[in-house]
Simulated assay, not measured.
Amino acid sequence: MEFDEITLKFKQIFQPKIVDEVMAVAAQQKRFVYYTSADTAIKIIRNQELWFRNASVMNDYSEILYGLNLIVAVFNGPEGARFREAVDDIFPDTIKQADELLSGWRHDWQFETYIACVSVHDPKEDKRGRLSMWRAYGDTALVVNNTPMIAITDLLAVFSIPVLYLSEEGLTEHLSQITNAILINRRYLLGLGQQTLVAYIHDMLFRFAIATKHPGFEEEKEWRLYYRPTERTSPSMTAETVVMGNVPQLVYKLRLADEPENGLHGADIPSLIDRIIIGPTQFPYVTYKAFVGVLEGLGVEGAAEKVVVSDIPLRVG
């Protein structure tokens, strides 16, 4: 993975923790994992599509509110004042313009963001999965290769971002790091012009809002894939109204395919699936055979070796 010079500079200044995590995933060839129910996993593989749901109907909605509230708390504090002073020293009223932009987009961020969530997979979990994730999300784990996640392209209009696990103190420290970078790079930012600086701050705040969670969830090691059709549409997304949990809702379905011309790299099922881990379940053999059959039906080589049964015992009662 290689960012162009301008993008890398922006991320180093305004998203230092994020760029470090993205580069680590690429350098270490980390894989990702999607914990879900067996029913959903079968549908993802057989239909070759991943659903993105509106954040307002998911647990992630409260997490977006958490991020927005954290922004308000920290940016109204002493470190926020230092940040504002550093920015306005480059161009007066830049913060005012960024605040006005944020006010106009806050509602849209909350209600027009569609997301799917995955976690960074630890090789030590290849044979068992992660117990806390089994308990929270389901009995099946789809372990996938990282190629689609680290491909640098905006053709798809679907983006991935690692979650930051920050308390108010953590975001304050993180903002201090950003402010220091702004002060060091003042001349560079001055050369970009005020509107670019406003856009950079807006993008930074957006990512804080949609990808910041309480530190208590840190073991999840989550990344978020997000799609914002009010900003840009994707050639690989299909919209459909469905009923889930008795709630009629619009979902967007991402076609899982290898279509570099649309920004999809190595996202077809045979290339994407590294392994499927069957979690603690009452019928492991039957479930194993079912997933092997579905993979074989899609032409996946070595399907029997790609499906493993977790060695964590099922706890009954």
Results as ranks from 00 to 15, higher is better:
146 N>S: 13
246 N>Y: 08
258 D>I: 01
95 I>L: 08
83 F>Q: 00
91 F>M: 10
251 V>N: 06
188 Y>D: 14
270 P>H: 05
97 Q>P: 03
65 L>A: 14
27 A>Y: 03
271 S>W: 03
13 I>D: 00
263 G>M: 03
130 R>T: 09
123 P>E: 13
213 K>T: 04
180 N>T: 12
268 D>S: 15
208 F>I: 13
26 A>V: 15
118 V>A: 06
56 S>Y: 14
203 D>F: 13
9 K>M: 12
177 Q>C: 02
183 L>V: 13
4 D>A: 08
315 R>N: 04
100 E>M: 10
56 S>C: 15
291 F>S: 05
63 E>I: 08
196 T>H: 05
149 M>V: 15
124 K>W: 06
209 A>H: 11
260 P>G: 03
113 T>D: 02
236 S>K: 03
303 A>Q: 11
288 Y>R: 08
312 I>G: 05
242 V>P: 00
240 E>L: 04
16 P>G: 11
38 A>Y: 02
134 W>Y: 08
227 Y>F: 10
108 D>W: 03
230 T>F: 11
50 L>M: 14
245 G>Q: 06
215 P>Q: 07
149 M>K: 12
72 V>F: 12
263 G>S: 13
49 E>W: 01
142 L>F: 04
53 R>P: 01
232 R>C: 01
107 H>A: 14
214 H>A: 05
225 L>N: 04
199 A>R: 09
143 V>K: 07
160 S>P: 07
103 S>A: 15
221 K>Y: 10
147 T>A: 14
120 V>R: 14
167 S>F: 03
315 R>S: 09
116 A>Y: 04
270 P>D: 10
266 G>W: 09
65 L>R: 13
26 A>F: 11
126 D>S: 15
315 R>Q: 08
39 D>F: 09
157 A>P: 06
311 D>N: 08
180 N>M: 07
236 S>H: 04
105 W>K: 15
294 V>S: 05
257 A>Q: 03
282 Q>W: 09
89 D>N: 07
251 V>M: 04
226 Y>L: 13
261 E>T: 02
173 E>H: 09
309 V>D: 03
223 W>G: 12
235 P>Q: 04
20 D>S: 04
163 V>D: 01
190 L>C: 01
32 F>D: 04
38 A>P: 00
52 F>E: 01
69 N>F: 12
173 E>C: 11
275 R>P: 05
143 V>P: 00
267 A>K: 01
260 P>W: 14
83 F>K: 01
240 E>F: 00
136 A>F: 02
170 G>P: 01
126 D>P: 11
126 D>W: 06
185 N>H: 15
123 P>V: 07
66 Y>T: 13
45 I>T: 05
10 F>G: 00
110 Q>I: 15
213 K>S: 12
36 T>L: 07
283 F>W: 12
80 G>D: 09
207 R>N: 14
246 N>E: 11
37 S>W: 13
269 I>Y: 03
136 A>R: 10
236 S>V: 06
270 P>S: 06
213 K>V: 05
134 W>D: 10
243 V>M: 04
44 I>L: 09
311 D>W: 07
49 E>I: 06
227 Y>K: 08
66 Y>Q: 06
137 Y>K: 09
148 P>K: 02
307 V>G: 03
190 L>P: 01
192 L>W: 08
112 E>L: 12
45 I>S: 00
277 I>V: 15
262 N>R: 08
94 T>A: 02
298 L>G: 05
274 D>V: 09
122 D>N: 08
218 E>N: 01
14 F>L: 04
298 L>F: 08
